[in-house]
């Protein structure tokens, strides 16, 4: 157990700190912004695309399962990222126009 913590200590630090940052950062958000904020956060977890790119880029020639699944993962991940940011921007554009 101790050994495990030792080898993964950087990761564990990041996890703990990010939990607090995540909570702190959106602590006092007005309810009007709940939806765009959720949508923005949705786009940010699209960072999973990086994993998909790595999977795709490492798939050996001839390993069709890995290629197909990896390709699908890249497409879906991109949908998440691009769609997420564009939708959020459209929502926020609505807010802007009123001024």
């Amino acid at each position: 157990m101790l050994e495990w913590i030792q080898t993964h200590q950087q990761m564990i630090y990041i996890v703990i700190l990010m939990i607090f940052v995540g909570i702190e950062v959106i602590g006092r958000v007005p309810s009007v912004l709940h939806t765009p904020l959720m949508s923005g956060a949705n786009a940010i977890h699209g960072v999973v695309i990086i994993g998909a790119i790595i999977v795709m880029g490492q798939a050996e020639d001839g390993n069709y399962l890995a290629i197909i699944l990896g390709f699908l993962a890249v497409v879906l991940g991109t949908l998440n990222v691009v769609g997420g940011f564009v939708v959020t921007d459209r929502m926020l554009e609505m807010f802007k126009k009123k001024k």
Binding site: V21, G22, A41
Partner: peptide
């Protein structure tokens, strides 16, 4: 960066 983004959204999403 995946770890940061993921956990950040995980925590913020839960609070939200």
């Amino acid at each position: 960066v995946m770890l940061t983004g993921g956990i950040l959204v995980g925590a913020a999403g839960t609070l939200l």
